[in-house]
Every structure is written in structure tokens, then in C-alpha cells.
């Protein structure tokens, strides 16, 4: 078994128009910058894939990563908890122009919806949001004297994640807190694509050190010394 793919271009080549794309990361940490930019480059060259739904905690910052996707015009909808950032102009502009739809989800509910999607659980109950405007349209039920509301699973066609080590089986580790959404997004997508800083031989990652087991990963590509989005934004870089 070898899930490794030689190039960034090849690894994102079949992502379709209208796909739901989960993108791991929180702020700049864990954002798979090179995978995103490969997708933006493909859109600029071919006009595809467009009309994407992007799932991330945020909605991009500066002019790189998800913000570059928004600037390119390939995003129809964003599902996130916090669409504000230090440099939110890319999202703001599209949102205020009515060109991008926003589905706002409390952060813990977003994480649990993604986990539920990956675990085959269509809905669950949470107290988060009860009595607020984000409860609108959600069925309520009382458990042990407290009100909870029903939330649905969230699944994706594709997940893009950034690992540190990866092997040909798709086993992944993550660097520090860059882990954030990656393990659950990898579970919730039909096709999970990982960029890893170092592709190693099977067995080089000790089995008990594997964070995402390879069953959740379809393809991976080695990107040595990957960019860190926060560093790019602070340097004023644009893609």
C-alpha cells in the first residue's frame, strides 16, 4: 500500500466543483498552506473547483490560505465559528457583497458535529446555544432536568490537513497544537488529503505515537519545511 502522491498538483487534481472541503487549522496553526495554494492555483488556471463550501474554525486572514481562496472567488459558503481575524478583509468583502454564505456554529458544536460525522452519528444533543439566536429551528429535548438542543453531523467530500510525519499507510502525527481540527476532519471526509513535513517508512512512526490512523487518510504528499500561515501573514505575504 502506498498512499503517497508525488506532487501537490496531482494530489488536489480531482476535487470537484461544489465540494464540501474541511480545512484543518486554528488561526494560522495547522493550516495546510501548500495544499490550499495548490487548489487556488488550479482554480486560477482552469476555473475549477469553484462553488466550494469551506469548513474551518475561522474564515481566513490576510491574503494567503483560505483568504486567498476567498479572494479568488472559488468559495460559495463558509461554515465556521469565528469569521473575524487580525486581517479579515478577504471574507468581509465577499460576505458584505452577499457573495459568500456564512453558517455560524459555536466552536465546540462545530468540533462535535465533525466528530459525529466521522463516527457515523447523525445527530446529538448539547446545551450549547440553548436560549440564544443560534438555537433557531433546532429541536429541544429535556434530559435530567436540563434543556438541550439537537445538532446534526457534519461531513465533507474532502479534508485538507497538515501533518508532521506521515507514512505510506496514511498514519499521521502533528506538530504541537497544530493538531487542533485535523484528526476529526480526517475522519469526517470521504477523501482526506494530508501534506506532511516528512514522509517516513511504515514502522518509523511508533504505533502508539500515531495520532491519525491511516484508515482515515486517502492520500498524502510530502511538503518539507512547510509555510506557517501566521508567519506569512505577519510578513505581509500574498498568494
Amino acid at each position: 500500500m502506498d498512499k503517497s502522491v508525488a506532487s501537490l498538483e496531482a494530489v488536489v487534481a480531482d476535487i470537484a466543483d461544489g465540494a464540501v472541503v474541511m480545512i484543518a487549522g486554528f488561526g494560522g496553526s495547522g493550516i495546510p498552506v501548500e495544499l490550499i495554494h495548490a487548489l487556488v492555483a488550479r482554480y486560477r488556471a482552469t476555473g475549477h473547483p469553484g462553488g466550494l463550501t469551506v469548513v474551518n474554525n475561522n474564515a481566513g486572514t490576510g491574503s494567503v490560505g483560505i483568504a486567498a481562496m476567498l479572494d479568488a472567488g472559488m468559495v460559495a459558503k463558509v461554515i465556521c465559528s469565528f469569521p473575524r481575524s487580525s486581517q479579515p478583509q478577504a471574507f468581509q468583502r465577499r460576505y458584505e457583497a452577499g457573495e459568500v454564505e456564512l453558517e455560524l456554529v459555536p466552536q465546540g458544536t462545530l468540533a462535535e458535529r465533525i466528530r459525529a460525522g466521522g463516527a457515523g452519528i447523525p445527530a446529538f444533543y448539547t446545551a450549547t446555544g440553548v436560549g440564544t439566536e443560534l438555537a433557531e429551528g433546532k429541536p429541544l429535548e429535556e434530559f435530567e432536568g436540563r434543556m438541550y438542543l439537537r445538532e446534526r453531523w457534519l461531513k465533507a467530500d474532502v479534508a485538507l490537513v497538515k501533518g508532521e510525519l506521515g507514512d505510506a499507510h496514511g498514519n499521521l502525527t502533528y506538530r504541537l497544537a497544530a493538531r487542533n481540527f485535523a484528526p476529526i476532519m480526517a475522519m469526517a471526509a470521504g477523501c482526506t488529503i494530508a501534506q506532511v513535513s516528512r514522509l517516513v517508512k511504515p514502522g518509523e512512526i511508533a504505533p502508539e505515537q500515531v495520532v491519525t490512523p491511516g484508515i482515515f487518510v486517502a492520500r498524502l504528499v510530502e511538503v518539507p519545511e512547510p509555510a506557517q500561515e501566521e508567519v506569512l501573514v505577519r510578513a505581509g505575504e500574498a498568494f
Partner: peptide, 10 residues
């Protein structure tokens, strides 16, 4: 732009 983050969960 509405932005809720983790406050409701917390």
C-alpha cells in the same frame, strides 16, 4: 459579521 467562537460552549 457575527462571530461566536467557543463562548456559548464555555
Amino acid at each position: 459579521t457575527p462571530a461566536v467562537g467557543g463562548a456559548m460552549d464555555m
